[in-house]
Every structure is written in C-alpha cells, then in structure tokens.
C-alpha cells in the first residue's frame, strides 16, 4: 500500500516537473531567444583577469554566444539596433583580446559590421590586431584590402594590403594579379564579388551560406546592370536616365528584382546601386 502511494507521488511529481520545464522553455523561446553575454560590456583586461588560466575556453563560449545571438538577429531578418551592433563589436573585441589568434570572430565582424552597421573603422582596427598576430594567415590583409577598396574607396591603401596578403604563404595565386586588375577596373563591385566568393568557399553553415549567397547574387545583378549601362553609353553616347531605358532599348528583357526588396537605380557617375543598401528591407 505504502509502496503504491510512493510510486503514485513519484509519477505525479515527474509530471509536474516535465510540465514546468516545458513551460519555462516556451517562456524563454517566446521573446528574445538568446541574450548577449553581459561580459562584453566589461573592460577586456578585467575579464581576462577573471577567467584566470581559461581565456581560451571563455573566448570559445563568448564566440558561440555571439554567433547564436547574431545569427538569430541577422539571419532571421530581425532589425538590429545600433546598440546591438555595438554589442557585437564589443563581443568580438573581447573575444579577440582573450584569444587574439581566434580567426572566427574576425570573420564574423568582417562579414557583418562594415556591411550592415557601417562600422568600417572599428572593423579595420580589429583586423590590424589580427594581422599582427596571425602572421601566417592571409585573411586579415585580404579583409583590410576589401574594406579599403569597397567601403573606404581608398584603392592605394587597399592595394598595399592586398600585396601584403599575396606574399603570405598559402594565399590564393590570383591575389598577385588582382591588385593590377583592380586598378584597371573602374568599379568596386568586382571586389565585393571576389570577397563574397572567397567567403563562400570557407563557409559550411547553410544559413550563413544563404546569407552570403544573397548578397553575392545582388552584387552580380548590379555588375550585370553596370555592364549594360556601359553598353548603352557606347551606343547612345549618353547615360540612361533610369534603368527602364535599358529595357526600352532592348538591351535587357527586364530589370531584375533586388533580393533585398529595394530598387536598383543609376547614380550620376553611371554606377548602379540599390535603395536597400544590401540590407533586408522590413517590408519583405
């Protein structure tokens, strides 16, 4: 009799426990899934002291935390506030203070901060730190080249970084010729395409791949549009007023849609860009 009572109460408390765990889980997944670690707001030197002899593990943990948090925000198309970009930046800064040779955080910063938060200077600062410790890795210089070329429109500094990247053992062969080619080509869309192609080669995560692919597709569309604009200029000796002129003159069948939901337009210098700025528009 007593044994039955005990068994019954055991089953009941098990059910209560399962029920509560389920509710707690639902509660936590309802709103924001992941919180960025509070640690990123502390001075890196303090955190470094606090983690004693385990900075590597702490860096790994924070990286995972930032990746998940960042991933949910960006890949799930939630609008990211400036303060949240700042948190991402601080996170990467802290992680790379704890373990300066950890490559993943630099890549995370490079693929997001300059593109979507305009934090080019901050990213370059991180990359210079990376370049100083990762002497046998060409990526930091490659990223610096890209930032200077594409975002800062400073081809000279960019070229210097690309030359530095090219002499690092293991750097892709085409870097050596790329610098020269870049100087000949007037646009900077090509640099974006090369950058994204390189990034895609190294990415295994399917979600990130989609994210980068979308950006690459858009840049390819812009490159194609610019090429047609060039043809139009050759043909008519003047710049088209807007892109629909290309369709009217039979150069293109239709203007492709911007995957980010914006609209392509011609700038005064003949370059093509999009109203979405390569950031997902909310209406989509």
């Amino acid at each position: 009799m007593k044994a039955w009572g005990l068994l019954l109460s055991f089953i009941v408390v098990c059910f209560i426990s399962f029920f509560c765990v389920g509710r707690i889980y639902d509660m936590h997944t309802g709103g924001e899934k992941t919180e960025v670690s509070r640690l990123v707001y502390y001075p890196p030197s303090l955190v470094k002291a606090l983690v004693l002899e385990f900075p590597g593990v702490m860096a790994d943990y924070l990286m995972l935390n930032t990746m998940v948090w960042h991933g949910e925000k960006i890949l799930d198309k939630i609008e990211v506030k400036p303060a949240e970009w700042q948190a991402t930046y601080l996170g990467v800064k802290l992680i790379t203070e704890l373990d300066p040779r950890f490559l993943d955080p630099y890549v995370l910063a490079e693929t997001s901060l300059p593109w979507e938060a305009g934090m080019v200077e901050e990213t370059n600062e991180l990359l210079l730190k990376a370049a100083s410790v990762l002497k046998d890795n060409y990526r930091p210089y490659f990223f610096l080249w890209f930032n200077h070329y594409y975002f800062l429109k400073d081809p000279e500094t960019a070229g210097m970084y690309l030359e530095k990247a090219a002499i690092v053992p293991g750097a892709p062969q085409f870097y050596k010729t790329l610098a020269a080619r870049m100087r000949l080509q007037s646009g900077n869309i090509m640099s974006g395409i090369i950058f994204l192609q390189e990034m895609l080669k190294e990415t295994r995560d399917a979600k990130t791949k989609l994210f980068l692919q979308k950006r690459l597709d858009t840049l390819r569309i812009i490159a194609a549009l610019e090429k047609h604009v060039g043809e139009y200029i050759k043909q008519f000796n003047q710049q088209p007023e807007n892109l629909s002129d290309l369709v009217r003159e039979g150069l293109m069948e239709e203007i492709p849609r911007d995957p980010y939901g914006g609209e392509f337009y011609i700038m005064e210098n003949g370059r093509v860009y999009t109203t979405s700025n390569l950031v997902q528009l909310k209406s989509n």
């Binding site: 002899e53 385990f54 590597g56 593990v57 860096a59 790994d60 990286m63 995972l64 990746m67 373990d99 040779r101 950890f102 490559l103 993943d104 890549v107 190294e202 990415t203 295994r204 995560d205 990130t208």
Partner: peptide, 17 residues
Amino acid sequence: GFFMRDILKITLDLCLS
C-alpha cells in the same frame, strides 16, 4: 563543429583546460 574554421583550437581549448 559549430565553429567555422578553428575546430582544432576549440577542441584543444576545452580539452587542455
């Protein structure tokens, strides 16, 4: 496996700790 590049580093970080 969750990380992109530094798989060996993550493994060793944890194991050596």
